[in-house]
Amino acid sequence: MNIVLWICGITLSIAGALAMVRLAKGPSILERVIATDVLLLIVSAALCVDMTVNKHTDNLIFVLLACLVGFVGSVTVSRFVTDRRNA
């Protein structure tokens, strides 16, 4: 399990770094919304890995909340992008 933890940690760190590069570069706000979504998913993946390796369920509610927050965030932002550009 220790080796698995190392592999998952390195993989998720690289993925988070790549998502943050897109978050910084992203030409429009919609790209940044997607990158933020991916970053949030990487955080919840890290919470899952932590729970699996240490065998506890403390973070389960955060994983649940993360997907709801990501949904509300991306829907709200894309809604207002549409309104502003069409006006």
């Binding site: 998720l12 790549l18 790209e31 997607i34």
Partner: peptide, 30 residues
């Protein structure tokens, strides 16, 4: 089995990160 699932699941996140950086436009990044 659980370890394999975890590694493959993390590789999915890595694929998303690489795709975010490499793909050309919004729809393919989506």
């Amino acid at each position: 089995v659980a370890g394999t699932f975890m590694i493959v699941g993390c590789l999915m996140s890595l694929a998303a990160g690489i795709g975010m950086l490499r793909f050309p436009d919004l729809l393919s990044r989506l």
